[in-house]
Design a protein around this nucleic acid. Structure first.
Length: 466
DNA sequence: TAGCTCGTTGGACAA
DNA sequence: TTTGTCCAACGAGCT
């Protein structure tokens, strides 16, 4: 059998622990590695993600010795075209779990099967398939803790090493530069270049460094945005430059060598667990990014306020921790997790703007923009998601700042106008006798906006007095 | 089955 | 300054 086979890369831009690639190579036929810029992808990839994708594809192509084939268009047309062109007999791929991708892949599977071609799909992105974890009655789960208890107890299996001596079948490829994934006019990617090094090798290196230097003390350190104590693996995980199984194995090795790390390690695994849970929710609720899981939220009295929304996006709200976070996002394509919750709570509860607007902004600006994580997390903060976070849980940006950034390290880094403000006023500079000239006054009053949010949330429960 | 327990990340206020 | 208590929906998940 010498007809080639196609391996279609999507969210699995790596060679190691890649089941579809391993199976394709094991089939013994020449391999055609393909990446398709899917012009019908919905929602389309955001700007920061496109920047990352460009560099990740460069890295993948290099590790394939320049044999990665790039095509742009609709996969349901391109895959059959390549099969016709090359006589390829089979398609290998790793699964995606968002609504658009599931529908697209199902259509392709049916078409190929009807045409007598083979379709082989695998799991490369998750510890568990979203349908493998069910409640005792067999349905999807909607509360994290029992979900993770079940998911965590399963055996994730051994890792696959990167295939060696791959035989390639070479065909014509697009030029990556023609895809224009990188911003040119203006080139806003300087901060991204400074902050990130996409690619499988860098994902491995970052994991190693994190486990060596930052796993100890992670449980507390991860909440301090001024300190570099998070793994920063999220974009690598999103693009599949590393698998959660690889991360789990690496963590297991680190804790076996040093038992003192056990509790920090479990805390870190927990975060991977949230990613798994988000995929579980998205798979069972394809509209997760737009439609509140709790139907009563369709009635919620959201406001419209273009000025507020603009101030939030630009980091000009007058609340230092919010502005620091939004500027970190704009500059680096990333925001510290603790700060993500604070800025989201502020948009939703203090400004009363619809959570979907924040979700879309994050989608566009994050290098780790992930359909499942992003949608599930915004719904969680809004309180319309799967779990029952009490509506009266409203983050106070001043108190959060004082608690998690007591010396304003994080604020000073991202809001230079406040660099010289003493610690005591760093989270409420408006109390200074002479507030900094070039920093805006607060766009909203905290107490009144909090009360307004409580009243708005109470309208969802008609039994309660307002 | 019906009842019980529990829920990632907090804030306001009183003592 | 710190610590404790209240807030108190409601539905998932378990027994």
């Amino acid at each position: 059998m010498n007809t080639p086979v196609i391996i279609w890369f999507r969210r699995d831009l790596r060679l190691s622990d890649n089941p579809a690639l391993a199976a394709a190579v094991a089939a013994g036929a020449p391999v055609i590695p393909v990446y398709i810029d899917d012009i019908a992808q919905s929602p389309p990839m955001g700007g920061a993600s496109r920047w990352w994708l460009h560099h990740s594809l460069v890295a993948l192509d290099a590790s394939l010795y320049g044999n990665l084939i790039l095509r742009r268009g609709e996969p349901k047309k391109i895959i059959p075209e390549i099969m016709k062109e090359t006589g390829a007999s089979a398609l290998y791929l790793n699964r995606c779990y968002d609504g658009y991708s599931v529908a697209r892949d199902t259509e392709i599977k049916t078409a190929l099967t009807d045409a007598g071609k083979a379709y082989h799909s695998f799991n490369a992105s998750l510890l568990n398939e979203p349908w493998e974890i069910t409640s005792n009655s067999g349905g999807p789960m909607r509360v994290f803790t029992p979900y993770w208890k079940k998911a965590r107890a399963r055996d994730f299996g051994a890792l696959l090493s990167a295939p060696k001596n791959i035989k390639f079948h070479k065909i014509k490829s697009d030029d990556l530069a023609d895809w224009k994934l990188l911003p040119i006019k203006p080139d806003w990617s300087g901060g991204l270049r400074h902050a990130w090094q996409p690619g499988e090798a860098n994902a491995q290196k970052l994991t190693k460094e994190f486990l060596q230097d930052d796993l100890q003390g992670y449980a507390d350190g991860r909440n301090i945005p001024g300190r570099d104590h998070t793994s920063r693996l999220s974009p690598h995980l999103h693009f599949g430059e590393i698998s959660p199984r690889q991360i789990f194995h690496a963590v297991d090795i680190a804790t076996a060598q040093n038992h003192a790390l056990a509790s920090d390690a479990e805390n870190f695994r927990y975060e991977i667990g949230w990613r798994e849970f988000s995929y579980h929710l998205l798979f069972h609720n394809p509209d997760l990014a737009t439609k509140p899981l709790q139907p009563k939220f369709a009635q919620f009295p959201w406001l419209q306020n273009k000025k507020h929304f603009l101030a939030w996006r630009r980091g000009q709200t007058g609340f230092p921790i919010i502005d620091a976070g939004m500027r970190e996002l704009w500059t680096t394509g990333y925001m510290h997790n603790r700060v993500r919750m604070i800025v989201a709570s502020f948009l939703i509860k203090n400004l009363l703007l619809p959570w979907q607007k924040g979700e879309r902004w994050f989608w566009d600006t994050l290098v780790d923009a992930d359909h499942a994580n992003n949608a599930a997390s915004w719904q969680w903060v809004a309180g319309c998601g799967a779990d029952a976070a009490p509506y009266y849980r409203i983050f106070n940006p001043v108190l959060q700042g004082e608690k998690f950034d007591p010396h304003g390290e994080y604020v000073r880094r991202w809001v230079p106008e406040l660099a010289d403000v003493p610690d005591k006023f760093i989270h409420q500079p408006w109390l200074l006798p002479q507030p900094p000239e070039h920093y805006p006054a607060p766009i909203i009053e905290l107490k009144t906006s909090r009360d307004r949010a409580l009243r708005a949330y109470k309208t969802l429960n008609p039994g309660d007095e307002i």
